[in-house]
Every structure is written in C-alpha cells, then in structure tokens.
Simulated assay, not measured.
Amino acid sequence: MNPIAKLFQSAKVFTWDFMLVLVNTFTPNLKSGEVVAQGHPGYKGKWPDYQPPKDGDSRCACPALNALANHGILPRDGKNISFKEMGRVVNESYNFAPSFCFFVPNYSANFMNKNYSKDTFDLAELSQHNAIEHDASLTREDTHFNADQSKPHIPFVEELLSYATGKDSEGRALLTADDIARYSAKRRADSQANNPEFSLETIHKFFSSSNNSTMLRIFGGRVDDLRTMLVEERIPEGWESVCQARKGLTMASFNRTAMTVEKATTKFLAKKD
C-alpha cells in the first residue's frame, strides 16, 4: 500500500473509532454476563475446554491470543489464521472495539508483508522482533536471551504480580497503573543493563505500555485472573472482560490509558537514574 493510501486508511480507522466513542458515550453499557454475546464462546463466562499447546503448535508473545488458541476459539494449533478471523475473535472474546480489531491485524499483516484480506499467518509470526514484540516485556525474556517467545517467563510474571498494591471491594489484590509502570520501569532498566542488543524505540515503548494496559482495561488488574492468564495462558472459568462499553474498548480510550502508563513508567525510570 502506498503512503497516500495508508494515510487515507488511517484517517478512516480513526474516524470510525471516534464514532464508536460517541456510541459508547450515549448508549448504556452491556450487562454483566453478556459482554460476550449469546451464541459465542465465553457467553456468561462459559469458555470452551482448555488444552495446553502440544509440540508443533504455534504460539506467540501475546498471552491473550495464546489463550484463545488454547481454548480452541482460534485454531488450537495456532496456524493458518486469517487476519480477519483474529480481529473478529478478539472483538467477541475480549470486547476490544471493531476499530482496534481491524487496526492491529492490519498492522500485523503489513509487517509480515502479507495481504490482510487474503493471507493467513501462524501465531509465532506475530513474535517478529521489534515489530509488535519488544525488549523489556513483563512476561517474556528478551529475544537476545531466549528466541522462543511462545512461553511466559514465570519469574517475571510472579514478580509483576507481587507489585500489586490495590484492593477491590472484597479485599482481593489488584494491580494499579502505577504498579504496572513501576515494574515496567524495572524491566526496562534491567534489560538495558544486561542485554547487549537492547533496543526500545519510541513506538515500542508505546506498544509496551499498550500491552501492559490490557491488564487494566480488560482484566481490571485482578491478580488472581491475571495469574491464570499470564502463567497458564488460560481464560478463568466465569471470566468476562471488565470493559462493558457497548461498542468495546476503543483505540481512543485505550490509548489514554497507555499514555498514562507510559508517563508513569518514564517517571519511575527517571527516579532510578
């Protein structure tokens, strides 16, 4: 796609997203238990059987996508997935807005040099280094130390969850935006100090904070749910997205959270210097 066509496409997506923001503003939220629509996997918290990946299955650096394959909502082997299918399933399962669910798969198709409408991909292809995947992840070792991005690094996950300072109304542990930012700052500092190939350009910093913000905007920072998702890459029984907006989590809303997390991460990094 030439630069002019990309510009027009981006303008259309952001206009679409703005319209979804307006719909969310002026319409009631979805009811609890109905964030996943009737007839779709996960309706009223009933998720398909979980099966860990087998040898030869394809997985990536994204726990949420891996979980969809582990439950058979995406192909269990993680292979031959269309970009449209990925967007549709993420929308239906996690309640990201349709605009987001076009933008990310289309971006992925572009960095893979594939056709969004016609081609397929394996989940592992999403782990191309410094495309969306990046150094200083909260759940994976840097590719310099481990080229296999398909599995979580459990010590990182447990350390992240140990940073939780929040509590819900029933006293259960919650990660806050500052908790996530504080651990992200630690990961960036440690990675920069120990990884001779460390890189984290501005766009990857934003990807990092966007990925981290999913824990807040989709999972509500709930430590018990996050441990299941990040360690086992399994959707907890009875779970549904905390985002109940009728048209899902828009790019505009999500980006505000990501910018808040990135600003806090930068602040904590400055304190380390």
Rank of each mutant, 00 (worst) to 15 (best):
E34R: 12
P28C: 03
L160P: 02
D142N: 15
R227W: 12
Y107T: 15
Y50D: 01
M1I: 14
G87E: 04
V89Y: 00
N70I: 07
F18M: 15
F219R: 01
S162Y: 03
Q244N: 12
K151L: 12
G171V: 08
V157I: 14
E92R: 13
H204L: 14
T228S: 13
P152C: 09
N95H: 08
D122R: 06
L175N: 01
S209W: 03
K272P: 00
V261T: 09
E232N: 14
F145A: 12
E232H: 11
G39L: 08
V261H: 05
D190E: 15
E232R: 10
A131S: 13
H134A: 07
Q192T: 10
P98I: 02
V242Q: 02
G166Q: 05
S127F: 01
L68V: 09
R140N: 15
N195G: 06
R256T: 10
S108I: 11
S208N: 14
A147W: 02
R76P: 05
S209Y: 01
I180E: 00
K44H: 09
R59P: 03
N115T: 10
W47C: 03
Q9S: 14
L230V: 08
A264E: 11
I4C: 10
A37T: 06
S32F: 09
A5K: 15
L30I: 06
V242R: 02
L126Y: 01
A67M: 08
